[in-house]
Design a protein around this nucleic acid. Structure first.
Lengths: 254, 254
DNA sequence: TATAGTTGTCTATAACAATAGATGAATTTG
DNA sequence: CAAATTCATCTATTGTTATAGACAACTATA
């Protein structure tokens, strides 16, 4: 028989009438409990009635939360037996001076891939121009990409490049599925992270679709600048990570 | 006359029946628009009817979103004139090897303060013991604190210390409102950040109250270890930042 | 095999969220 | 001043969310 996992003491009340449905708040807390180890990987969740009591809601509300997590693949419910934790642990993504997607995930996943969603040459807005050291309105190449690990989408990035210096970047990325490889084809053999700023917000509908998330999901946002060895900015990017699947590790010194 | 700010083209549909109320999704997008500069600081928001049309919802739903943002202090509505952006820019919090709350915010806010919510000596769980290099079950001092900038709560931290080595830390913190100062009273004149891991999630009810957030708000979570100059772990902490008010800046090199 | 424990499904009711339309109140514009 | 614009408030209706209770289906165990 499987051991039932006992949860921690504090029964924090849910927020009612807050614009976020109770079942979603409970789903968040169960997911969080799994990430923190309160609910063990592969272990059995407490029965629905016990969860309902702990969260101070009706059993049917808990069922809504469980249904959502089953849908996501986080839980697996078996009639008569119980509900079990299926979730894979979070991926750790290192933020440092040397930051590359696939190198970053080595050892954590079997295979990584980048997919080009869209590309366009557009005039730079002031933020982009400032980041890349160009005049406002200069032509920049914008790439919309999704990066996947073992077939599951992990992040969605929008990147901007000097359209003149990096003409053909789009094609190179589409072929290789890697920014590093695409840079290499443009004569950039090495590059470094100049700055990274982290924030978080709810994913909008487009991002939900691209990252296969359910509505209300949270994304970690990094806004970063990469520079070449001479210190010239070559890429400005905003990357959205599914907060349920990824944690960002700040690499100190380096 | 104030110029009405035109918003970007893409009218992304809201997600209905998703567990997140439409008014909250819209509030999130307006907040995001302010952060991204789509809606200018101090500028006027498009009128309610225009916003309703853009988001594909009823005017009353937009009003719900605006009411929530007015409540938060992000917007200010004036009958007959329009709705205006009030928001203060996000505080930038630097994550690096030398990370201290008040030094970090210097130049961004006038005054910083730490407030002790609770303290207790408890047996270390496995995560805490591992982080601090103690045996599981060893006595650790747990401090629950809130840090404020100009009177507004910015972060809420739970910190763990070796209860023997740092006896009296609680009192020292309560008096000084600063971890750095409290360390100094325990003979630690300098300390460094060993590791920082960033994630994000919804704030639970306790945190909402402590950070004066409205329900459904997102927090950035940093889990960090500080060490003394000899490289011994002296503090393990989990800090929650209001994602609407703070962005984390990864300080490269150092 | 009988029983207890667990998830799955159904019905009904109440509370909250979203839409719709109408009207009032304050401000700006011509 | 008159008209247009904009936010504020009210009533009514519909759909979604949450609660409540009852019972069926399945599993494990004594």
């Amino acid at each position: 028989m499987t051991e039932t996992i006992e949860a921690p003491g504090s029964v924090t009340a849910m927020e009612r009438g807050s614009g976020v449905a109770l079942w979603r708040q409970i789903a968040d807390r169960i997911r969080q409990g799994i990430a923190e180890g309160t609910f063990e990987e592969g272990g059995r969740l407490p029965p629905e009635i016990a969860l309902a009591e702990r969260f101070g809601v009706n059993r049917h509300t808990v069922r809504g939360a469980i249904a959502a997590l089953v849908q996501e693949g986080v839980l697996r419910a078996e009639q008569g037996r119980g509900t079990f934790v299926q979730h894979a642990p979070r991926i750790s993504y290192a933020l440092g001076r040397y930051t590359r997607f696939s190198a970053n995930l080595q050892g954590q996943v079997r295979e990584t891939k980048g997919r080009l969603l869209a590309s366009a040459v557009v005039p730079a807005d002031s933020r982009t121009a400032g980041a890349l050291g160009l005049d406002a309105g200069a032509s920049v190449l914008r790439l919309e990409t999704v990066s996947e690990a073992d077939g599951h989408p992990v992040s969605r990035a929008t990147s901007w490049f000097d359209a003149i210096r990096f003409a053909g970047m789009e094609e190179a990325y589409a072929k290789t599925g890697s920014i590093t490889a695409a840079f290499a084809r443009c004569g950039i053999d090495d590059y470094m992270r100049r700055s990274t700023v982290v924030s978080a917000r709810h994913a909008d509908a487009t991002v939900l679709a691209d990252l296969s998330l359910s509505a209300g999901a949270i994304v970690l946002v990094t806004v970063a600048i990469n520079e070449d060895p001479e210190g010239r900015a070559i890429q400005f990017s905003e990357t959205l990570f599914a907060a349920d699947r990824v944690e960002l590790v700040v690499a100190e010194g380096l």
